[in-house]
Simulated scan of single mutants.
Amino acid sequence: MRQFYVFIKCELGHTYDVAAKLVDNLDEAPMVHSISGAFDLLARFTLQDDTDIGRFVNQKVQTIAGIKDTQTIICFNAFTRDQGLGDD
């Protein structure tokens, strides 16, 4: 499984509608945060390893009504307490 994040800028007055559409309609988006700054939402997505992330964002995310702009952040590694760098 691959994880990535998408910063989402919404049309004015549509942030909560967009967030609801993401979590209600996309199983790949288990969590969406409202945030401050240049973007309105930060969504976490999880896809199968062989899924084209660019095509997914283009066809499934950017087509949601109320989304004005996106920026995709692809994750390389996840470090947790039980799975760190291994340099102990």
Rank of each mutant, 00 (worst) to 15 (best):
L26N: 02
L47G: 05
T70M: 01
K21D: 08
S34N: 09
I64R: 06
F7S: 02
N25T: 10
N58C: 14
L12M: 11
V6I: 13
V61H: 06
K21H: 06
T15S: 11
D52V: 04
C10D: 02
L47M: 03
V18M: 02
D24T: 15
L26Q: 02
F76N: 08
P30L: 11
I35T: 06
F76S: 10
L85N: 09
L42G: 02
D24L: 14
N25M: 12
Q3A: 15
L41R: 06
C10E: 02
N58K: 15
L22N: 03
A65Q: 10
Q62G: 09
F39R: 00
G66S: 04
R55T: 10
L42N: 05
T72R: 00
R2I: 15
K21G: 01
Q59W: 09
N77R: 15
L41Q: 06
T72I: 02
Q59G: 07
T51E: 10
T15R: 09
D40R: 01
D88T: 11
A29V: 08
H33R: 07
N77P: 00
A20T: 11
L22E: 01
F76T: 09
Q83V: 15
T63M: 07
Q48P: 15
N25F: 09
E11Q: 11
C75D: 10
V61I: 13
A20N: 13
Q59Y: 11
D87H: 14
Q71Y: 02
A78K: 14
D69T: 00
L22H: 02
A38L: 10
V57F: 01
T51Y: 06
L22V: 07
K68N: 10
E28G: 05
S36V: 15
I74V: 14
V18I: 06
D24F: 10
T51C: 04
V6A: 07
T15F: 05
L41M: 03
R55L: 11
D27M: 11
L41K: 07
E28M: 04
D27N: 13
C10Q: 04
E28Y: 05
D24E: 14
S34V: 10
F56H: 01
F79W: 13
K60S: 13
G84V: 12
T46K: 13
R81G: 13
T51N: 05
M31K: 15
V23L: 06
F7M: 06
T72C: 00
V6N: 02
G66R: 04
V32P: 01
